[in-house]
């Protein structure tokens, strides 16, 4: 594929991603609007006069028609203004900036750990058909794939609460102001360990299962037998000949895996009080914080679309056939 063709492909995919993001966030906006109740629902208590509620609604712009609100939102979106959160009384963009970083940190660490462990385990178990490594890895991985992040984080919280080795929740300790940046990094890492492990566990198992299957297939191919016959050491055959082929199906599903990270991190964020996007989205949804909901939808779908794009480009890089055909 020529450089220009690649650029065209990239631009087309980016345009699709933007359309998707727009559709998803508009959908979220509409859904929240249609939902019973609005941001002033909590105000409606006995003793609060109707005029007060009406005034608050007018102040938040909720008394206008949906079309008017939506048009304002779209115009704002064009200027990258995502509106104000009714719950927090702050611009949605500021809130997203804080929270997206936290979720991205959790997701990136979990995904890296899961990839390294999963790929290694998959390669190890497929390339050593004899010996104890294979049944051990496949046994561990079938159990691990059955422990979803919600349960993993609860079980790890039990461990943390009983042993005190890890903090049970939050992203940092209370009194970090006086600490050097190194101490702060260590503090966050310490808080990150359990949530990241909870998200990574079933993912690592999934990647392992995919990788070992693909690797087994690759190792059964005739070119591998030919390489072995020429006297190339097994280790080099596995890593140099079979792996480049066997890694493709795994890379091909990274987009789906990323969706898994994202969904998994929701439960983990709630259990371990990790101040991320999932938590924010949940709060926004139940408090009918209409612009915050659509803002979270933008951040989430952008995150996914870019992840998908990244995984497709990676696939393009490792697979010459795809480059030739597109």
């Amino acid at each position: 594929m020529s450089q220009r063709a690649f650029l065209r492909y990239l631009l087309r995919r980016l345009a699709f991603a933007l359309v998707l993001v727009f559709l998803v966030s508009s959908g979220a906006l509409l859904l929240t609007h249609l939902a019973p109740g609005d941001a002033t629902s909590e105000l409606r208590r006995p003793g609060v006069r109707d005029e007060t509620v009406a005034l608050e609604r007018a102040k938040l712009g909720l008394d206008r028609s949906f079309v008017a609100q939506y048009m304002d939102w779209v115009v704002g979106l064009a200027r990258l203004d995502l509106g104000r959160s009714t719950r927090y009384g702050r611009p949605v963009a500021d809130l997203l900036a804080e929270r997206t970083g936290n979720t991205a940190l959790l997701a990136a660490v979990a995904l890296s750990v899961a990839s390294v462990v999963g790929l290694w385990a998959g390669i190890a178990s497929a390339s050593r058909p004899a010996g104890f490594a294979r049944p051990l890895i496949s046994g561990v991985s079938i159990v691990a794939v059955s422990v979803p992040p919600l349960l993993a984080s609860l079980l790890l919280a039990l461990l943390a609460a009983r042993t005190g080795w890890f903090p049970v929740g939050g992203i940092s300790s209370v009194d970090t102001d006086g600490l050097s940046w190194i101490a702060r990094v260590i503090d966050v890492t310490w808080h990150l360990a359990l949530p990241a492990f909870a998200v990574a566990l079933p993912l690592a198992a999934t990647i392992d299962r995919l990788q070992s299957r693909a690797m087994e297939e690759a190792l059964g191919a005739t070119y591998v037998r030919a390489a072995v016959g020429r006297g190339i050491p097994w280790r080099r055959v596995v890593w140099g000949h079979a792996l480049p082929v066997a890694i493709r199906p795994v890379l091909g599903v990274y987009g789906i895996i990323l969706g898994g990270v994202f969904s998994g991190s929701f439960a983990v964020e709630i259990v371990t009080a990790w101040p991320g996007l999932g938590q924010l989205m949940y709060e926004a949804l139940v408090s009918r914080d209409i612009y915050l909901v659509s803002g979270c939808a933008i951040a989430g779908s952008l995150f996914l679309a870019l992840g998908n794009l990244f995984s497709d480009v990676a696939l393009l890089v490792v697979d010459p056939r795809l480059r030739a055909s597109s």
Binding site: L31, L34, G259, F262, S263, Y282, L285, L304
Partner: peptide
């Protein structure tokens, strides 16, 4: 393409 859990969450909470 949407993460299923979020769709469920959104549909249920509205």
């Amino acid at each position: 393409v949407l993460p299923a859990l979020y769709v469920v969450l959104a549909l249920r909470s509205v």
